[in-house]
């Protein structure tokens, strides 16, 4: 039975698309047939992060409007055998995503895939609601920062009230918290909310912590999902996230400051 996972946050720029690309790639690396869908109509970006922007011919909206078959719009990932990308369109027509259309696409994808990963747009408008509507599980991406935490709380409320599972009185959407752009040094210095703080505030189980890293920019510059950045803490952290999602026990890593030498301590840096 296919599982639908929404990557959401409320706030923009916290790492939803980065996480969608890395997480979907991670599931595919573990052998699961996976598709990742861009729900950010008008501001398409998942294709760039996945590095398939030049292979986009048809998109989700073409499929919904009957202009293309689903098979024509799915782009096979060049790095993972079992991974497909369903890009969105750059249309400015806000009503291009219809509930019936999205439901039909989801029903078709369910037959073909083990995991369907939905990359939500920021905000709480129709695109974001559409992305979370069918979800069985949700990964709420949060930065340790006040506006991101508050927006995540809003999104958790919306998941509990507006998802298909909520509307039909089924078991609620399973929620996971993913803390990104985490800087253990700044937490130690008392300048940044700690993972314990955020967990306590949002009362949601923690799926993982992704450290702040320059590797993310290097990855997006090249269109490589961050999980493929060999020997980086970010790739390792995302692999742990995927393992935990699949039910494996993994201790949290990269949550302690890296020890710096005496001279660096003396002169800062």
């Amino acid at each position: 039975m296919a599982k639908i996972i929404v990557i959401t946050s409320g706030k923009g720029g916290v790492g939803k698309t980065t996480t969608s690309a890395a997480f979907a790639s991670g599931l595919a690396l573990r052998g699961y047939r996976t598709v990742v869908i861009d729900f950010d109509v008008g501001l398409r970006n998942l294709d760039l992060i996945m590095g398939c922007e030049r292979r986009v011919v048809y998109d989700l909206i073409n499929v919904i409007q009957g202009e293309a078959k689903l098979q024509q719009a799915l782009i096979k990932d060049k790095r993972c055998e079992n991974l497909y990308v369903l890009p969105t369109s750059q249309t400015r027509d806000k009503d291009a995503l219809t509930t019936a259309g999205v439901t039909a696409v989801m029903d078709e994808l369910r037959k073909e895939f083990d995991y369907i990963v939905c990359d939500s747009p920021a905000g709480i408008e129709s695109g974001a609601l559409m992305a979370l509507y069918h979800a069985d599980e949700a990964i709420v991406v949060t930065n340790p920062e006040v506006s991101s935490v508050r927006d995540s709380d809003r999104i958790l409320g919306i998941l509990a009230a507006r998802s298909r599972r909520a509307e039909q009185g089924e078991e609620p959407v399973k929620e996971h918290l993913l803390l990104t752009r985490y800087s253990p040094k700044r937490v130690e210095d008392g300048e940044m909310l700690s993972l314990e703080d955020v967990k306590e505030l949002l009362r949601t189980p923690l799926l993982g912590v992704i450290p702040e890293s320059e590797v993310i920019l290097q990855a997006s510059n090249q269109g490589i999902p961050a999980i493929h950045m060999e020997n980086s803490d970010v790739a390792e952290a995302y692999k742990d996230v995927v393992a935990r999602f699949l039910g494996e026990e993994r201790p949290l890593r990269f949550i302690q400051p890296v020890k710096v030498g005496f001279f660096k301590r003396l002169f800062g840096g």
Partner: peptide, 14 residues
């Protein structure tokens, strides 16, 4: 050290 200020404000507003 401003993290605890952030936490207290969030506790109230949430």
């Amino acid at each position: 050290k401003t993290a605890h200020v952030a936490k207290d404000r969030l506790k109230l507003i949430l």
